[in-house]
Design a protein around this nucleic acid. Sequence first.
DNA 1: GTGGTCTAGACCACC
DNA 2: GTGGTCTAGACCACG
Lengths: 130, 130, 130, 130
Amino acid sequence: MIDIDVTSSTPIYAQIIRGMKEGILKGIFEPGEKLPSVRDMAKMMTLNPNTVQKAYKELEREKVVVTVRGRGTFISEEYKPRKDEHKLSEVKETFKKGIIEAFYMGFSKEELIDLVKNLLEEMEGLGRND
Amino acid sequence: MIDIDVTSSTPIYAQIIRGMKEGILKGIFEPGEKLPSVRDMAKMMTLNPNTVQKAYKELEREKVVVTVRGRGTFISEEYKPRKDEHKLSEVKETFKKGIIEAFYMGFSKEELIDLVKNLLEEMEGLGRND
Amino acid sequence: MIDIDVTSSTPIYAQIIRGMKEGILKGIFEPGEKLPSVRDMAKMMTLNPNTVQKAYKELEREKVVVTVRGRGTFISEEYKPRKDEHKLSEVKETFKKGIIEAFYMGFSKEELIDLVKNLLEEMEGLGRND
Amino acid sequence: MIDIDVTSSTPIYAQIIRGMKEGILKGIFEPGEKLPSVRDMAKMMTLNPNTVQKAYKELEREKVVVTVRGRGTFISEEYKPRKDEHKLSEVKETFKKGIIEAFYMGFSKEELIDLVKNLLEEMEGLGRND
DNA sequence: GTGGTCTAGACCACC
DNA sequence: GTGGTCTAGACCACG
């Protein structure tokens, strides 16, 4: 379902969050769709339930997902992107970090832009303004 | 010299590494130039010498910097970028993470490319093919 | 577990690294096996945890060992030796140093080869092609 | 004269010692030959005189070299190799270290023996029982 | 003066 | 529980 690398330095809960978001953007998860329960998800991915719990909580906080008491967790029907300043600067930092590392691998500006464009294509279905 | 945000979740030593690399790419540090000694740098940034040491060591491992016995640490004269597989996938992951987050803020593909291009311009002097 | 000579000029962390590698080659540590936690190892060897940590980190950098978040450090399941130029010349230097010193003790070429062969036998189980 | 790498982790004075010994074994320095003064040597190799001094002192301690007050330092006429226990175990340790690292680079026993043999041939003129 | 190592002890995020 | 980071302070080898 979601690729998890337990040896990665990225926390597992963060990998889940990212994987969910990617899945939603790619259309693998449809708005309104029900997610597996924390327990099931944990069993399926052989993870600690606490870890999955933490990911769900964060996704809910970001309004990517909503939990209905007694019914379960669902992909938000209408996710309203908010361009808040803090988040924006975080994203910028992420790109900056990538750019610096890319230059240190010998990439030119053009190659770098191409790399990003390729990644965009690779993630087919992303970025549709729907 | 290097901006450090002690409240950031990014470890201080990693911020130093990134800051140094950025400084070198921007031409603020010249190849062959001597870095402040571990102690001096620590004093300047009111950090523990061990923290600075850790950053310097990692920079040396990446061949960004060389240490000369008894004399200090210097910017590498000739840094040969090597496109190692592992590093490349790391960079890709970084960009992917940025892309997903950006889309979740409502960016379109075009806006995203523009964002990257702007960041590139902002970092004046980067990516020179010298 | 691992012999440490605190009076040696070889840093303790380096002795741990070497000891671990030797143990793995000898089959004392099996692939996938869990290492003692940093704290436990430190307690067992009456060392500071930071020292053990440093050794573990370096072993991880060399891919001899992997750390799994929240669970601990494990012997790599599949260690892929890579003959990198830098490392090779390092090994050559080590042998060259040994050869020079041996000759200065009056060893002949034949005696020297025998010495190496004996050392190889002594380290039973090393160099298995598995 | 002697290759020195100031960025190496091997102390410079140790590199000098090793270089001298290698030169003697190779016949580049003849027994009885006069060595440059500490000051000249330091100037020639752009090193700190203290460093050269230290190397000379150690070479004298090992009786590889003799200093005649007022005349200078000379290669020993008759160097009598002594197989002292301590030195022997040191050499063994050096080889052991090399062996472990070599195995970790994927060398087989045979390849390792070949490597050592090649190094021996490379160092033409070494090991003559003269 | 330089970096390298080590100890002691603390706090934190993650699982 | 695990490893990761940081501070404080000490000692050492080297040049």
